[in-house]
Design a protein around this nucleic acid. Structure first.
Lengths: 348, 348
DNA sequence: TGGATCTTTGGGATCGATCCCATTATGCAC
DNA sequence: GTGCATAATGGGATCGATCCCAAAGATCCA
């Protein structure tokens, strides 16, 4: 038979209420009683049933994490950080993978709510603001990450895509490059648009205009990277630098450059957006814009913990914590060996 | 106020018992009553409290997934597969990341059990056989993946490391290579030992002995790959092929080969163990041994579902499903463009 | 020593579902 | 019409913890 609180209470010679108080750290109990109960619990190897506790106390110590996939490096990095931080604070993480399908995402949000999660971290499609707002109103904590539904009443933790792209482009401009290629995502994607905006802005600040013949946009896939860089090399032989703003495309761009004998940074300086661990081991080590995935996860979890702690306490605090404010985690340019001044050409 | 079963019952004009039966698909209820209750539930947007249901019925519809990290491609692939399959079967996944620390792993196993998970998938350290056996005895489903504790009473789903390594090496031998390098993990790691054994066996079958000057073993880290391949190239200039059996090291090996001008497969044929999605986009596309991460996850989840379904039913079935049998998921050699016959040398 | 206050404890209700048992309706055969 | 099996329903107990209220015991001061 499984050991319950009742058995512990009997073993310690006290009532269930007292045993409960002893183990939950209530102050209204004597030190000896607490010790006795703790010893009894240890003797019987008591393992509290969290389900029962959650049902009565309305605190499940469960956090839901909803995201598109676990393949993308930023996503699984965030998942790891969130999980660690949650575990350290006594929360467990329930996982939902949506494939970026809003319907599936909605389904997960409701199911996780049915399981009584105290809070939700949504790295989502941005299409379920209404659902998360409803959960928020019922007292569930919510934090949006990376993408922010237009109508969300929950706080959002966003990457500084525009600033990062601006920094990357400015770095290349500082080195003396003027013909800088751009391979990014479609303008329909938030990150695609923001990063292009940062690129454009940096150029404009130096009095340069975007040359569309240096720009490639396409899906988040390695295959696109291969095609894009091939086209760019043919179309724009005088390009001296490239800003790769499409995470997945990088997987196609790098090998193609290596195999076609383009020397980096000799022939082409290269900056990639989003840090992927092994880019540092590339030869040459790749200069990147680190979007701070770990920090995004960290901050999101902090905001969620804040909400959940205020949850049963004062309404003002909860109100405070539950505003729809957006937070930005700054991007960081990590300069490695793939960027250098352009080769001075006699024929230029 | 939150809508409970009581409210639905009132709305439909029936008792709570009847409402419960209608919504849980019990056969002892009339079609009209069922329809009426379902409509009432829909009208009120009823969302059942899974906590309460789980407490009473001892079925939480929760599955625990314990793994070392989410960075490793095999791990996050398995995590994705398990999550999808679980969701399709009406289960939610609770995540535990252990950093390969047995103590942390044990902690997670107990915590997840306290949350009442119906089953556990453990991609673990192999050090907590006793704990999982205890949970198994209490009626929780357990499946080990990739690593199998020596004393585990639960079924295990293992990768065919030895066979995969054998296939990779044989492929190179078939092409005519004789001086085949090996970069792998330490022999203290199960996968390191098994893969080396497969390599050795393939050589022996052709009457060749292992030449230790062609072998490098080290930690699972990109940096090690860089060092290892650099040493090998210097030490064994006549090596014509390489089997890279250390997943993480591949991240160091590939760029180093590219930057030092070693032509693949012209100068060196290359096979990597474990499929990493972007290896297909490398130039040349890399021949790999696919360890079948997705299939590992799939099979593990099937075995777990089997246990959980038998869970409350016949003891015989449960007994059957809960043997400590080991299952192997075959490795698959995926031949791409990085392997070719050795160049015939005038000076050989 | 009595009474007021504070500390500590026990008993019962409760969270929201499911399960078991008793009860009522229904159908069918004789 | 009676008897009996079957189908459908309702009421209360239950899962295992926490919460609330009342009561018992300890403390202290007048």
């Amino acid at each position: 038979m499984r050991i319950g609180l009742k058995e512990v209470a009997a073993e310690a010679g006290v009532s269930r209420s007292t045993a409960s108080r002893a183990l939950s750290g209530s102050p209204l109990i004597s030190a000896e009683t607490r010790a006795a109960v703790e010893q009894a619990a240890a003797r019987l190897n008591y393992q509290p049933n969290r389900l029962a506790g959650a049902l009565r106390s309305k605190q499940s110590h469960l956090v839901g994490l909803v995201l598109n996939n676990l393949i993308n490096a930023s996503f699984h990095t965030i998942a790891e950080v969130v999980q660690r931080r949650a575990a350290d604070e006594g929360y467990q993480v329930m996982l939902g993978i949506t494939d970026a399908d809003p319907a599936r995402e909605k389904e997960f949000l409701r199911t996780l709510a049915a399981h009584g999660v105290d809070g939700l971290i949504v790295i989502g499609t941005g299409k379920n603001g209404a659902t998360t707002n409803a959960l928020l109103a019922e007292g569930t904590g919510v934090v949006n990450v990376i993408r922010r539904p237009a109508d969300s009443a929950a706080p959002s933790v966003l990457a500084a895509d525009r600033e990062g792209a601006h920094a990357a482009t400015s770095h290349l401009l500082d080195l003396g490059h003027e013909r800088i290629g751009f391979i990014g995502g479609e303008l329909t994607a938030d990150s695609g648009r923001e990063r292009f905006a940062g690129y454009e802005q940096a150029l404009r600040e130096r009095g340069l205009a975007v040359d569309e013949s240096l720009v490639e946009r396409g899906p988040f896939a390695p295959g696109f990277g291969t095609e894009a860089i091939t086209r760019l090399l043919r179309r724009a032989p005088r390009m001296t630098a490239l800003f790769a703003a499409n995470h997945e495309a990088v997987f196609g761009i790098l090998p193609t450059l290596a195999s076609t004998g383009v020397s980096v940074p000799g022939d082409l300086s290269l900056v990639c957006h989003e840090d992927i661990s092994w880019l540092r081991y590339w030869s040459p080590a790749i200069t990147v814009v680190d979007n701070g995935a770990a920090e995004l996860g960290e901050l999101a979890m902090n905001l969620l913990l804040q909400q959940m702690k205020h949850g049963d306490g004062g309404r003002d605090g909860a109100q405070e914590a539950r505003n729809g404010r957006a937070y930005r985690v700054g991007a960081q340019l990590v300069i490695r060996d793939s960027t250098a001044p352009p080769a001075t050409r006699r024929d230029g």
